[in-house]
Write a protein that binds this DNA or RNA. Structure first.
Lengths: 343, 343
DNA sequence: TATTTCTATGTAATAGCTTGCATTTTCTGA
DNA sequence: TCAGAAAATGCAAGCTATTACATAGAAATA
C-alpha cells in the first residue's frame, strides 16, 4: 500500500503560518464570506505558500459530506448517456462537486451493487436512470438519507425527484405520425424490455398508436436485442427473413436504427422506398447515416444539466423533490416516407 | 444541509453487540484471516443484524485510502474517451474500485483545477490523457504520493507510467500510405496544437511523411479548430475556398473527417474521386458515414482497460512504473483513393 | 514441567477537519 | 463617547475506523 507521502501540511500548519485559528482557516476555505478580507488574504497566502490541500477523509468525517455525486448509468458508450453525464458533471463542477460514474451494462444486479458501492464511497447524492429497481435499493438510500434524482424517465412516486420525459408518449407520437403517412405493417427492434423501463415504454407507446389507429398491435413482431449497431443489423435480417417485409420498422433507439438501415441497404433495399425505419434519441449518428434518420429528439444535455442542478439542491438544501418533465420533439429526416402502397 | 440520517450503527455498536473490541471487528472486515472462525461468525452476525456499513470518511482518514480512482479526460462526448473510460471503469470495478470522472474540455487550466479537486476528493490514483501539462501538477501529485497513469500518449519521462500509442508514428504511416498512392497536395484539419500534444504529434507525423517523400511540408495549410462535426464542415469549406483544392485532406480525428466529408459532398464533390479524406481513431461514425472513412484504428478499449489495471497495481503494490505502448492499425475504407491525376 | 513461540484479542493513540458556542473586535447611531 | 448590535475570530468537542503495541492464552518444544 502507498504511504501517506511526506508529511503534508495540515489545517493547523496553515493556521500557524497565517497566525489565526484552524476554525478561521476552515471558514476561509468553506465559507469565505464569513471571514474578513484582510484575514482571508493572509490565510490564502499561507495556503498557497504551503501548497495545502485539505485531507479528504478528515473533511468527510467532520462535515459528514463529501461533495461527491454518483451517477449509475447503463453505459457510457451510447452517446446519449455520454452527453447527459457530461452535462451533469459540468453542472456539478460549477458547484464544486465531483462526479463518481459507474455503468451497469443494463444489468439490475450490477446496478444494485454499484449503487451500494457509491454510497460506501461517500456519495452525497445519486443520479439513476429509469425508475424501475428493487424497492430495497430505495429503502437503503432512504435509510442513509441519500437524495436521488431519476433521469430519462418520470417516476409515479410523488416523493421521487426526476428530470425525465415521457418515453411512451414520444414513441406513440412518432408512430402515429408514421401511421398518418399510410403505414399499416410494422416490426419493432427493441432493447430487452424486461429490465429496461424506457425500452418498454417506447414499445408500449408504439403499440398504443397502432391500436388507436384501429390496427392489431399484437401482430407486430418484436425483436429484442442489446443496443448496438451490429445487433440492429442482425435484427433487421431476422425481420427481413420472415414472410413479408413490414413497411415500417420501429427501432428502440438510433443505434439500432442505424444498424437496421445499414442492413436494409446491404440487402439491396431502398430506405425509405422499400422500407421506412425510425429511431429514438437523435444522436449525431442519425444525421451521418444515409438516409438521415427520422427520430425523436431528446434533450439529453439539458436533462443532464437539470439533473445536476436538481441533485445539488436536494443535497444542499434538502429541497422538496423536484419533478421536471422535458419535451421531446419529432425530427423528420429521410428514413421515413409514405409506403409504396400509398404512391 | 442534509443530516446524517437516523443514527447509523458504528463499529463500536457492532463490537458491543458481538462482545468483542472494535479492533476485532475492524479486522473481521478487513483481514478476516487474522480472526478465529468462531469470533468471526459472531461478529459477522452482529454486522448483518445491525445492517452495519463502515463510515466512509472515518475509514478514509484512518486507512488513508479510499478506493476511488480519478480520470480527467478532455471530453466524454467523443466516443473514443467514452469507450476508454468505460473500459477503465470496468477494470477498476472488478477490483472494488470506483471511478471519479471529470472532463476538462481540452482546457489546461480546467484540467489543473480538476486534478486538484480529484485529489481533494480522495482519489487514490489518477488517469490523465496526454503528457503535456504544467510541471507543478506533477510535483503536486508526487508530493501527495498519488500515482498517475497517462493514456493516449507515451511519456518520455522514464518514471511515468503510461498506456499509450505513438500518435506521431501512426499519423506518419497513414499519410505515407496516401503519398504512396500518388497524393502530392495536402491540407490538414487539426485540433488546436498548442494545448494538445496528441493533435500536435499527429500533425508532426503528417509533416514528417511529406518531408520524407521529398515534398514541402511547410506548404501544407493547417486549419485548427475544436473537434466537432460542424467544425469539420466549416474547416473544409475554408480549405475549399482557397485557390486550388488539395488532393488529400488529413484530419486530426474521425469527427473532423466526417464533417469534412459531409461538407465535400454538400459542395458537390465526390469523395474520394475529387478529394480524399482521412481520419484518426476509428470510431463507429467512420463506418456509418458514406464513403466510409479510411483511418487509423486505435485500441481505445484495450487502452482503458490496461490503464485501469496499471493504475490499480501502482496504487496497490506501489509497483514500478509500467509503460505500455499499444499498436495502431491502418484501416482502409473508401474515403482514400489514388488522386485523379494518377488515373 | 518450564520455556518459547504463536495466535488471538484488546487498549488506546491517532488521523485532520468542521462547527456550535463563547469571546473579542468592529461598527453604528445617538 | 459609549451602549448595543453585528461581524469576526477562537476554543475545543466531536466524528469513526485503523493499527501499533501490549497482553493473554494456547500450542509446541525442550
Amino acid at each position: 500500500m502507498v504511504s501517506t507521502g511526506r508529511n503534508l501540511p495540515t489545517l493547523e500548519d496553515v493556521a500557524r503560518a497565517a497566525g489565526v485559528s484552524t476554525a478561521t482557516v476552515s471558514r476561509c476555505l468553506n465559507e469565505p464570506g464569513k471571514v474578513s478580507e484582510k484575514t482571508r488574504d493572509h490565510v490564502m497566502q499561507a495556503v498557497s505558500k504551503l501548497n495545502y490541500s485539505p485531507n479528504f477523509g478528515a473533511r468527510a468525517i467532520a462535515a459528514n459530506r463529501t461533495g461527491i455525486f454518483g451517477a449509475v448509468i447503463p453505459t457510457m458508450e451510447n452517446a446519449i448517456f455520454a452527453r447527459g453525464i457530461e452535462a451533469f458533471q459540468k453542472s456539478l463542477v460549477e458547484k464544486n462537486g465531483t462526479t463518481l460514474v459507474a455503468s451497469s451494462a443494463y444489468d439490475p444486479e450490477n446496478e444494485a451493487r454499484l449503487i451500494r458501492t457509491m454510497v460506501a464511497r461517500g456519495a452525497d447524492g445519486l443520479l439513476l436512470i429509469g425508475t424501475e429497481r428493487d424497492p430495497e435499493i430505495y429503502t437503503f438510500l432512504a435509510d442513509r438519507n441519500i437524495p436521488t434524482v431519476i433521469a430519462w424517465a418520470c417516476s409515479a412516486d410523488p416523493n421521487q425527484a426526476y428530470v425525465g420525459f415521457d418515453n411512451r408518449a414520444a414513441s406513440e407520437r412518432l408512430v402515429a405520425h408514421a401511421i398518418g403517412m399510410g403505414h399499416r405493417t410494422f416490426a419493432c427492434i427493441s432493447a430487452p424490455t424486461a429490465t429496461n423501463d424506457r425500452a418498454r415504454d417506447r414499445v408500449l407507446g408504439a403499440r398504443q398508436a397502432i391500436t388507436t389507429a384501429g390496427l392489431d398491435a399484437a401482430a407486430m413482431p418484436i425483436v429484442e436485442t442489446d443496443y448496438s449497431i451490429e445487433n440492429g443489423r442482425s435484427a433487421f435480417r431476422q425481420i427481413a427473413a420472415t414472410a413479408s417485409l413490414p413497411s415500417l420498422i420501429i427501432c428502440g433507439n438510433d443505434v439500432l436504427a442505424v444498424g437496421a438501415i445499414q442492413a436494409a441497404t446491404a440487402a439491396g433495399l431502398d430506405v425509405p422506398g422499400d422500407v421506412s425505419i425510425i429511431g429514438f434519441d437523435d444522436i449525431e449518428l442519425a444525421t451521418v447515416i444515409s438516409p438521415a434518420l427520422t427520430t425523436v429528439h431528446v434533450p439529453h444535455r439539458e436533462m443532464g444539466r437539470l439533473a445536476g442542478d436538481t441533485l445539488y439542491s436536494l443535497v444542499k438544501d434538502a429541497a422538496e423533490p423536484i419533478r421536471i418533465e422535458l419535451e421531446t420533439r419529432l425530427v423528420e429526416r429521410q428514413s421515413l416516407a409514405a409506403p409504396k402502397s400509398m404512391r
